[in-house]
């Protein structure tokens, strides 16, 4: 008999607590302010986000540089950590802004809420719980990304929200111009005219197969990815296989972890040149080993495309200097001077 009392009491206690939780109603709904004009966009997660415009206080856990590019850096009140390359081209006032999140994985909710933003930009690392907390507090959250296929859509959306559609289109057109340029020039190449490429990133023999953004870059630049058909998206290739494929080109992506100065690039390249498995490959013999930084390969895709295309088909791209284009792009859209090494040789 006493057993049942204990179990029953436990159940009753649980029910009481649950009931209390609902009645105390700990959610704090925000008062609705007088209606402003709203713009509704669809973000990468398929959510219809309603943003009241004009937006005055933005927290950019991603796309900080895009907002600056669109001319609205004064609206940013909080940011995430930025890479050195991005910090270099942004106005110094951005660097003074509080860092409210290392990345979308770990936002500091208290700081974010205290800044009272009216728009928060995040990428897919944000947990649904954190998104809910912000949305319950009345803050619109846009979860998107700067890679294709969302890049153009997202930038257009931002332009719409900030009332900077012209600038947004200017930037998109600029990027498209170069993408189309490369596309047209390699359009009529036959397979035999396209070099085979071994692409490596992150660590030795780590490559990328079809379906990855790296593969798409290689193909769009008129190359053939020797790892295209691998079953795993980011395969670790066997050295024998690469040796056997005898690639015409070896492209190695570097990140800030590898070092940012010229010496670092040279070190990476030298290491590949000295690998026994690759010593007999065409790429090494002809010195066609190139190191390119992720900043241009991924973040500033058109520039990366130009670098690759020029390496693969020098005769078709004699008139293009990717470094110069890069410099010009940064000057035109960020008003800053480009510094640093992004590709070698």
């Amino acid at each position: 008999m006493r057993k049942r009392t204990v179990v029953l009491s436990a159940i009753i206690i649980v029910l009481v607590i649950v009931a209390l939780a609902y009645t105390i109603n700990l959610y704090v709904p925000f008062e609705t302010a007088p209606q402003k004009e709203t713009i509704t966009i669809v973000d990468n997660t398929g959510v219809y986000v309603e943003v009241e415009v004009p937006v005055e206080r933005i927290i950019s856990i991603m796309a900080t540089e895009i907002i600056c590019l669109l001319g609205h850096e004064d609206k940013i009140v909080g940011r995430s950590l930025l890479s050195a390359d991005v910090e270099a081209i942004l106005p110094p006032s951005i660097l003074d802004l509080p860092v409210v999140a290392e990345s979308s994985f770990s936002p500091n909710m208290e700081l974010i809420l205290e800044l009272e933003p009216d728009l928060v930009l995040v990428d897919e690392g944000l947990s649904s719980e954190n998104r809910k907390t912000m949305e319950d507090a009345g803050i619109p959250v846009i979860n998107d990304m700067l890679m294709e296929p969302r890049r153009k859509i997202f930038i257009k959306n931002l332009g719409l929200i900030l009332g900077a559609e012209e600038k947004a289109n200017e930037f998109i057109d600029y990027e498209e111009y170069y993408e189309n340029l490369v596309k047209e020039r390699i359009e009529n190449l036959t397979t035999s005219e396209k070099p085979s490429v071994y692409f490596e990133w992150y660590m030795s023999w780590f490559s990328a197969s079809a379906g990855s953004e790296f593969h798409d870059m290689l193909v769009d630049a008129g190359g053939i990815n020797i790892a295209a058909g691998e079953p795993v998206l980011y395969p670790t290739l066997s050295p024998e296989y690469v040796a056997d494929e005898n690639p015409d080109f070896i492209i190695r992506m570097s990140t800030y972890l590898d070092g940012e100065d010229l010496a670092a690039f040279q070190t990476l390249r030298d290491e590949i040149l000295s690998r026994p498995a690759l010593s007999e490959s065409k790429a090494v013999k002809e010195g066609k080993v190139c190191v390119i930084k992720n900043t241009v390969l991924v973040d500033r895709r058109p520039i990366g495309l130009l670098y690759l295309a020029k390496w693969f088909h020098p005769s078709l791209f004699e008139d293009i200097d990717p470094a110069a284009v890069h410099e010009q792009m940064i000057q035109q859209f960020f008003g800053a001077d480009l510094e640093g090494v992004f590709a070698y040789p």
Binding site: L26, Y27, V28, L113, E114, A137
Partner: peptide
């Protein structure tokens, strides 16, 4: 303020 309430009741607590 509302912010204070949200921070205490929806984040810390």
């Amino acid at each position: 303020s509302k912010i204070t309430q949200v921070i205490i009741l929806d984040i810390r607590l």
